[in-house]
Structure formats: C-alpha cells, structure tokens
Design a protein around this nucleic acid. Structure first.
Lengths: 336, 336
DNA sequence: TTGATATACTTAATCGATTTCGTCAATGAC
DNA sequence: GTCATTGACGAAATCGATTAAGTATATCAA
C-alpha cells in the first residue's frame, strides 16, 4: 500500500508537506505541489479513508436505515427506488452509504450504537417503526438525521403530501361517478392516519357517506393481507364500486382475489393504488394511482442530510414536502 | 465520546489492559476484566470501528457492487432480493456493507480504487458488465471477490444452473404440447449464451426446429424492449404458440403488447419468464417461470466471501451452483 | 535463600493521515 | 546594516485502538 510516507521519502519532503500539497494547502511551493502530485499519481497513491476519518472526525459515510421488522423492506420497489436515489445523490456529493441495522454479528447494538460504531456522519431513516425506542433514540441523538414520512421535533424530514394525494384520488373516483368507495389501509402509522383522515374528509365534503364495513385494515406491501381485505369487501351484501388499496403492491393481492371471484378490472370493480411505482404503469390495465416521487424524495433526503452535516451552523430543521401527481391509469371505470 | 483511555483512567489501569480485557485476552486478571467491562457498560463505551480498522487492517466491511450502467440495478426485484440477502448474511457474521461505485464525488476512482479507499475486506460483484476493464481490474486484484453469474479464473463465483433451468422450461412447454417456441433473449452475456444454447439444444433434442425469426433480442429487465420484440413476433405470418422472456419483469412488457393485440394469456398465447421473483406469483395468471433462489445466492455470496476473508490459507476458489426450480404457474396453456 | 516461572500489567510503537506551531532563509524597508 | 515580514517547509502531537516486548510481583521448587 502506498502511503504519504512513501511519497514523502521519494520527494524528499516531510509527510506534512505531502498531505498539504495533496489537499491544496496554501503554504506549499507550486513546483513542490507539482512534483508531489506527479509522484502520487505515478505510484498509484490512494488516500486511506479510514485514517482520514479517524483524524478528522468525519467519515464521509452516511447510514441508511430500513427497518428490519417489515422484513425485506429494500425489496419493495418503492423503497429500492428511494435507496437508489439516496445512493446516487450521496455519491455525487462524495459520500458513501452503509446500512444501519440492529445486531451486527455477535455484538448487540441498537441503531444509534451501530451508527456511532461506524462513525456515520449522518443517517437517513427511510422506513421504520417510528414508535420503536431504538429509532427514537437515534432520531433524538446528536447524530444528524433525516426521516422520511415522519417528523421528529427539530429534525429535518421529507414528507409526501398524503392529504392532497388522497384527496386527489377520492375526487378522481368521484368525478368518474363512483359513490361507494371502500378503503383498505395499512398499519396505523401517522402516514396512514393522514391518508385516512383525508379520505374521510374528502368524502364528507363530496357528500359521500362511507359505511363502517367499507373500511378495512391490512398490511402495507403485503398482497396477501390486502387480498383478505378484498374478499371481505366482496362478501358484503352491497359491494363498493371502487376499492382504494394501501399501495400499488397491495393492489396485486386484491387483483388475484377479484380474479378468483370472476370479476375483471375495471368492468366489475374499479381499483386505486398508491405510490405510482414503475411496475404499476407496466401492468395492464395500468393502475390508477398517485405517484410519490421516490427519486426526488431520496435525493432530497441525502441532499438535506449532507447540508446539515457540512453546515451545522447555518442549518435549520425543515419539513420538505415533495408533491406527487395523479396517474389516471385505466383501473377506474367511468360510471353512469 | 467514550474511549478506552477514559475507561483506563477510571479503572486505574493502562489502555492496553482495557483493550485486552474487552477483547478477552488471556493475561488479564478476572476481577480486572469484570471491573473494566462493568465500567465500560456504565459509561456507554462503544469501540471505534475506524480506529480498529486502521490498526488491524481489517474493516469488517464488505463492498457490494451493482453496475451503475444498467441504471437503477437495485430497484429490480431480483437484485434487491440479492442485496437484501447479502446484507442479512453479512450482518449475521458481523460485517457491514457499503456500495462500491465509480466516481465518488469529485474524485474519479474506479471500482478497485473505491474498494481500497474504503478498505473493504472484500467485494460481492452482483450485477455488472464483466467485460468492463474496471470490473476486471477489481476481480483480478488482491481484494477478495465473489461474482454472481460469471466466473473469473481462480475466483469464487455463485452460478445459477442456467442450462438446466432453460432445459426445464423448454421441456415444460413441450409437455404441454407446444412446438412453436419463440425466444426473446437479453444482452449477450455469458448467462444469455448459456440459456440460449440450452434452449436450442433442448429444442433440437426434442425435435423442435426454431426458425430464425423466432429468436429476438431485447434488454434484461426492460419491459419496453421486450414489448417491441413481442410485437415483432406477433406480426409474423406464422405466430409462435409460446414466448420465452428474458426475465419475469420483461414479461410485463410482452403482456401489455399482447393486450394491445387483443390476445389474452394463456388462451391466445402462452408465455414463460425467468427468475421467479415474488411478483411473478402474485400476478394473475401466475407466471410460468424458473425460480432462481435469490436469497440463497446472496447468502452464499456473502458467506463464501467472508470465508475467504477470514481463512485465506485454507480457502480455495470454487464455483457454487445454486439450483432453481420450476414454477409452473398458469401462463402455459395445455395444447391439443 | 536463590533462581526459575507464572501472572498481571505497563510501555511504547504502530496504523495513515491531518494540523498546529515553530523554524529558517530570503526579501524588503528604513 | 538591522529588523520585520513573508514564504516554504518540518517537527511533533493527535485521532482510538491493538499488540509485541518488557517489567514487577508473587509463587514455588530445590
């Protein structure tokens, strides 16, 4: 391994000078800089990020946290899109990313400890149970963090406009003549609460009444559970005309259930998703859904986290709202 | 930050003793160990992975490389499943993972340099252009590597049984009465070559002749390009009865093209995918495909890489074949 | 009692880089 | 000619941990 010591010897200068020359310090003679840079390139010198991190107290490494609990959070297209965009933006700004998890090998660490252990400069908390004490500990620690879809006090968060999104979808169904709307929701997180409140409020504003049995619960990103919820809806004496799913992936579970009942979309039943993942627009019929700009959200998360890391004095916590858009698709039938 | 120095002061011993006590060295008195461990816990001491890595020359960090070129490799379900399982296994064994990419921030580095810069103990090369000189440099360097679906000389690789997989699928179609088989393949990688050779060989063995125009090229994981290939097939005077797609995701592109032509699956056309991602079995009809055990492959990759890192002397390069299985699905119609 | 042998620590070097402060020579001002 | 200033560089401490080698004390055999 080539180190600054090697270069120092070859150039006949001290290690201090090599370091300064390589980092563009002002007090090195131009010709010395030139010599050192040339030799460094010639020898294939690479700075050692570890040594640098140790000395500088900055690792240029940010953690990304996907909750372990949901099991395979990454493999849902929505989250992998976020991961991808966080990665891209971080790399553009010179940062690497590392996953933060509980229980690394034999040592039992919580998220905060893991992040400290790896001396992450900051952490993006992308998908997690925000009631988990371990998450709260991390998000209220001295480590800079950015959360997606949940706000901690005095912290930056990237929020999607769930209220507007759901309102848009309800109005879309309404405009297509639907009056019997069923709503399948995911686990009761703050996001779910917002969407559900918006669903009910918009329905009320439009004069639509939503019977109790039209609201069912399921689990996000789990086709099986939304399939069960769908079945329950189909067994009602008076079926809805349009079903809202917690997310695009969950819709797939509903789709097979409808199929099993010999119903085709959107002829016999209209459906609406949420997220607008690429897959939803590749399916036929194209899913009617609300696209949350996953790439923009990941990018904003990385950008604002690094902003916070690099300019802690001028930094102020903020809630960044990223707007989505309606993808009309073909799964909502025009009634009447 | 609590360091061993703090603990040493409080316990009235030297830093060396603290380090040894914490790491279970034999030459520390039991009661001293007890005292030190207690105080460490009390103070919330956390080892500093950076300092440790610098001194020991081992970072307990492995790199994962997904080619940038394909753009968003992670967000394809097949790769995110692999990532997820590599991560899980690595963490189980006490390793963190970091993404390896080209061009970190302003500095221009290739993959090898990036891995060295971050002092990765090893790298899993998961999805890449194996003809890329930068990949070759990394895979032939002194850094331990494991590749998926491609073998470098004297290196460990995780290979899926493409030959057997394709043979299984062809026979499956044959047994269902299909004799006109069209084959859409992805970019011409070694995997593609194996699958195509196996397709042709099995067809020949079964006495099926494959006209030139039944073989079309597309791009992996790109519904659009497989849609185009599908269209070309549908415009032939004599259409095939069954279309093989490069992968499950590509099938979706074919699906919408078939839809556009008013054809339904499998009544008017039978289709076969490859990969067996969870999505494929949630769709209705369920896709007939060959499941490559992504989790097992990711797990094996991490396990064998770490094996190599931790026992370099007894280690021998090997090609680990992970077998898949037929998922019959419902997209191949029984003919005749 | 003496020398050998454990036992339990400590000392100090080291990993590779950064950074503060100090030094020395050259230059310029008066 | 003298003193202050500037430019270019080096010495050494430091980040937090590990570890080989050395040391002091206690133990034991003969």
């Amino acid at each position: 391994m080539v180190t600054i010591t090697d270069i120092a010897k070859i150039c006949g200068v001290s290690r201090a000078t090599v370091s300064k020359a390589l980092n563009g310090a002002p007090d090195v003679a131009p010709k010395t800089v030139k010599l050192i840079r040339e030799k460094a390139k010639e020898l294939g010198y690479l700075p050692n990020a570890t040594a640098r991190a140790l000395k500088m107290g900055r690792s240029y490494n940010i953690g990304v946290l996907f909750s372990d609990k949901t099991g395979g959070g990454i493999s849902h297209e929505y989250f992998s899109q976020i991961l991808e965009s966080v990665k891209a933006e971080a790399e553009r700004l010179g940062y690497d990313i590392t996953f933060i998890s509980k229980d690394l090998g034999a040592m039992q660490m919580d998220y905060y400890e893991h992040a400290k252990y790896r001396s992450c400069d900051g952490v993006v908390i992308a998908s997690a149970d925000f009631a988990d004490p371990a998450i709260i500990r991390l998000a209220t620690s001295e480590i800079p963090t950015v959360t997606l879809d949940y706000s901690f006090d005095s912290r930056t968060s990237i929020i999607s406009d769930n209220v507007r999104g759901m309102e848009t979808l309800v109005r879309f169904a309404y405009e297509n003549g639907h009056r019997k709307l069923a709503f399948i929701h995911g686990e009761m997180t703050s996001v779910t609460q917002k969407r559900m409140a918006s669903f009910k409020k918009t329905c009320a504003a439009l004069g639509i009444s939503v019977p109790r049995e039209y609201v069912r619960s399921a689990v996000y990103h789990d086709p099986r559970s939304s399939g069960l919820a769908t079945r329950a809806l189909l067994e009602l004496p008076e079926k809805p005309t349009c079903i809202f799913y917690p997310d695009d992936l969950s819709f797939l579970g509903g789709m097979s259930e409808l199929e099993r009942h010999g119903m085709s979309i959107p002829i016999d039943m209209s459906v609406i998703g949420y997220d607008g993942i690429p897959l939803s627009q590749v399916l036929r019929p194209r899913l009617s859904t609300y696209r949350q700009a996953a790439e923009r959200r990941g990018q904003e998360a990385a950008r604002s986290l690094i902003e916070q890391i690099e300019h802690p004095d001028t930094w102020l916590p903020q809630q960044i709202t990223v707007e989505g858009e309606l993808l009309p698709g073909d799964t909502v039938r025009k009634l009447g």
